[in-house]
């Protein structure tokens, strides 16, 4: 066991956690992902932005194979994504996902939502799972809501529970698929603060978002997508102050005006 973990540490040093190579995907006639090459290093926070329909959500969902791809390869921590089955389930447990519509389990309490994956997938002891769940709920600031059902919480609270639920699995990487797009404006910040804290703690994150403030302050790299392609990627300062492509200039001029 120790040897294995040492080997994994070595791999950690090499740094490439998520690697997409010439990934293509079609939705019928629509070519949503066109030759996507993207490498995300351990501890890196990558923000994916772009106009709607550019394929950024689809890209995010291919990383844990909620969307299948037509060609290309995706590997996580050196292992290519397996076919649907037990193997894939095991890999998904290492990839946290936060959805636009929260998707908390409606028939379970907040606490149960955060415990379920630990108990059923990680086979953790119930008591330990509960302690960890409560600690995580405190960390995202919803500890007092533990015994309520998701529907009794505000959107911002639900999304923070969803983040805690994903963190409970000790993921290697976290995917955020427009985590604040379904929130009322006054609730966006409470979720972004949790994400910013997570980024500071060194979590590897892929974030699809329209929140340019978050991209500026928390991202190591901004990936700009349009029409199924990665048009441009750069450090946030560079991207927002002097974008190279016309497509990005056009996009930024539209969103940064108000």
């Amino acid at each position: 066991m120790t040897e294995v973990s040492v080997a994994e540490e070595d791999k950690a040093a090499t740094g490439e956690l998520v690697v997409l190579k010439s990934v293509n995907k079609h939705f019928g006639a629509l070519h949503v992902l066109q030759d996507i090459d993207l490498t995300i290093a351990r501890g890196e926070v990558v923000v994916v932005i772009g106009p709607s329909g550019s394929g950024k959500s689809t890209l995010c969902r291919t990383v844990n194979r909620l969307e299948t791809i037509d060609s290309g390869t995706i590997s996580i921590d050196g292992r290519p994504l397996p076919q649907e089955g037990k193997e894939l389930a095991r890999l998904r447990a290492d990839v946290g996902m936060v959805f636009q519509s929260f998707n908390l389990f409606a028939h379970k309490t907040v606490l149960e939502n955060v415990m379920l994956g630990q108990v059923k997938v990680r086979k953790a002891d119930k008591k330990q799972a509960e302690d960890k769940a409560r600690a995580l709920l405190d960390r995202v600031g919803v500890g007092a809501q533990a015994d309520k059902y998701p529907a009794q919480l505000s959107g911002g609270q639900q999304q923070r529970v969803a983040i805690a639920r994903a963190l409970a699995m000790d993921p290697k990487v976290m995917l955020f698929d427009e985590p604040t797009s379904a929130l009322d404006p006054e609730m966006i910040n409470e979720v972004l603060e949790v994400m910013q804290q997570l980024a500071r703690d060194g979590m590897t994150m892929i974030v699809v978002t329209h929140e340019m403030g978050f991209a500026r302050s928390a991202a190591n790299r901004v990936v700009f997508m349009a029409d199924g392609r990665i048009v441009e990627q750069a450090a946030p300062d560079q991207f927002f102050s002097s974008p190279r492509s016309d497509r990005a200039k056009d996009f930024l001029s539209k969103i940064l005006h108000h």
């Binding site: 959805f99 908390l104 639920r165 699995m169």
Partner: peptide
């Protein structure tokens, strides 16, 4: 809602779970 099953799968649950 489909999102419920997607959330479960993304936690690493198998189909039957």
């Amino acid at each position: 809602p489909l999102g419920q099953a997607e959330a479960a799968r993304s936690l690493g649950m198998t189909f039957s779970q």
